[in-house]
Nucleic acid binder design. Structure first.
Lengths: 152, 152
DNA sequence: AATGAAAGTTGTAGGGT
DNA sequence: ACCCTACAACTTTCATT
């Protein structure tokens, strides 16, 4: 039941309680209760308008691997990229690199500036490797709510 | 002006027109006009509830690189991962790999099943490399609306 | 937990500046 | 483009089962 509501709200965050009510077969006020509790419990963390990167002029998407040896680098690195809007994601990953960044900029010139003025400006960062995204076949923020058939 | 509205709606997709109106200094109906046009123009592509992966039981995030030689593999690969909820993103990237996937599952056992039953089940896929995400320091879908100071 | 109805807000469309 | 107004739709609360 809650899964169904979450599913619908992931797809369309503006779905009215009237519509949700019809879809799940509960009264409007019951739906209101359940959604409120989903937010209180932290299952639903927020509602956001999604913006087309291209419409915003951000035509270049890149993944940047970051490497360092000195563990002292981590704190200033995280602080810097945390306040950098061009960085959409920063993940601590296994393997030969420390971090993987997802970066959106306008052009290759701007990517170059990002690497030179933001990343290399952090003392101690030794290696980077950049992958340019040619096209994105899929990009969704909807999480699976049910177990897939290939895993039981 | 539109940038300001987009900014606010990216942060909170439930911001009322009354609040937007107060924030940008326009009448409610003007705000309504502008937001409607932003949606019509495709700048705002939709509104979505954001769900906590951990609350949904998806504790494992991984990036999976996929490689093949035969170009015939692309079509069936894209069709398969397009309909796979565990795959959040699929990017065609430069470098030694063809695609980079962002995958969310519950456990390492489920990741193993994904690689065996979904990826390796696609004929022609020759190489994969999986990076496990230990922690995500940043994960936002808010796009920058202004040019950064490190790029003029 | 779920329901129906009342009361308060908000979204939207119209005409006007 | 922007504003004001009015009505419809929606959200939220509350008493009840």
């Amino acid at each position: 039941m809650d899964r169904h509501l979450v599913d619908l709200l992931q797809r369309n965050g503006q779905t009215s309680y009237a519509e949700l009510s019809k879809a799940v077969g509960l009264a409007v006020s019951s739906v209101n209760d359940r959604v409120r509790k989903l937010v209180e419990r932290g299952v639903i963390t927020g509602y956001h308008a999604h913006v087309s990167p291209e419409a915003a002029g951000l035509d270049l998407l890149a993944f940047v691997f970051i490497g360092w040896s000195d563990p002292e680098v981590a704190a200033p690195f995280l602080e810097r990229i945390g306040s950098e809007p061009a960085v959409q994601e920063a993940h601590h990953v296994t393997g030969q690199w420390n971090y993987l960044l997802k970066v959106r900029v306008r052009t290759t010139r701007m990517l170059e500036a990002f690497l030179a003025n933001v990343i290399k400006a952090i003392p101690g960062i030794q290696r980077t490797e950049t992958l340019i995204v040619l096209s994105s076949a899929k990009e969704t923020m909807a999480l699976p709510t049910a177990l897939p058939d290939w895993f039981k």
